[in-house]
């Protein structure tokens, strides 16, 4: 089986937001980066699928050359090859652009299944997975917490606000992965050594152009300073009073 896992290089969750000089981007000074949290789960799902069904895993990202650090990490965990669709200006992308660039490469790779995170933790669109599937004309199950593939079909479970859905799908498919699907492994020494000789290709992405236009970006308004209403059990009546008479909630 030809398996692809896509990931996005994003600022770590500790990153602070600071508006850039143009007022339309964030200033990345001081940021550290990582593979988006849910994409780690996607790579693990890809590796487990390979272990169960055979085949090989390509890790695919749209991003800067620096993403080779994360690609190398995933190769050390057991992926076979990496592809970086080099994108000089990640801030300018929108989900349609990303999905189209990934779709072109996924098609060229002849993949049977693509795993990706349910959302990237920088722009929070949660759109690329299902858009990718739609451009490919494939099945897609989003926010998956359990997965079973057998032959050219599979079943997946997704958690929604109203309960757990079981979805039957046919391959080829895009699966967007949610926390709970698996626990991403850490690489071992043998994997780290093996990763050094695995190929990472850098290519130019297809360029659909962005439709989303950022007009401005700002930090959320600071919350009005609150107050400590009290301490311990003695503070409980004051808190309930505040909820009732100030917040008008009770």
């Amino acid at each position: 089986m030809k398996i692809v896992a896509t990931f996005k290089r994003v600022p770590t969750t500790e990153a602070q937001a600071k508006v850039g000089g143009d007022g339309k981007t964030l200033d990345p000074a001081g940021w550290q980066y990582m593979a988006s949290f849910y994409d780690e789960i996607a790579v693990e799902a890809a590796l487990q699928t390979k272990e169960k069904h055979g085949g090989d895993v390509t890790v695919l990202t749209l991003g800067p050359s620096e993403a080779s650090k994360e690609v190398r990490e995933f190769l050390a965990r057991g992926a076979d090859s990496g592809v970086i669709l080099k994108d000089a200006d990640p801030a300018a992308r929108d989900p349609r652009w990303t999905a189209k660039a990934l779709a072109a490469k996924v098609q060229a790779l002849g993949a049977d299944v693509v795993f990706t995170g349910r959302v990237a933790t920088d722009r929070d669109n949660a759109a690329v997975g299902p858009m990718l599937a739609t451009y490919l004309g494939w099945a897609c199950v989003t926010e998956v917490v359990a997965l079973e593939i057998s032959g050219a079909a599979g079943t997946a479970q997704r958690e929604t606000e109203h309960g757990v859905e079981t979805v039957a799908f046919s391959l080829p498919a895009v699966i967007t992965c949610n926390k709970g699907l698996n626990e991403p492994r850490r690489p071992n020494l043998k994997g780290i050594m093996a990763a050094k000789s695995k190929p990472i290709a850098e290519e130019s992405p297809s360029d659909a152009g962005a439709q989303a236009v950022v007009l401005s970006v700002e930090l959320p308004p600071a919350r009005k300073a609150g107050r400590i209403v009290g301490e311990g059990l003695a503070g409980v009546p004051a808190l309930v009073d505040a909820l009732k008479n100030e917040a008008k909630i009770l």
Binding site: P95, R96, A126, A127, T134, C140, R158, T160
Partner: peptide, 24 residues
């Protein structure tokens, strides 16, 4: 709406209309 179902449907509709999506 940006619920589990809305997030499952809206990106596909947007792609079918060859339009990007502004989420949440």
């Amino acid at each position: 709406s940006a619920t589990s179902t809305g997030k499952d449907i809206a990106p596909r509709v947007a792609a079918l209309l060859d339009s990007t999506l502004l989420s949440d």
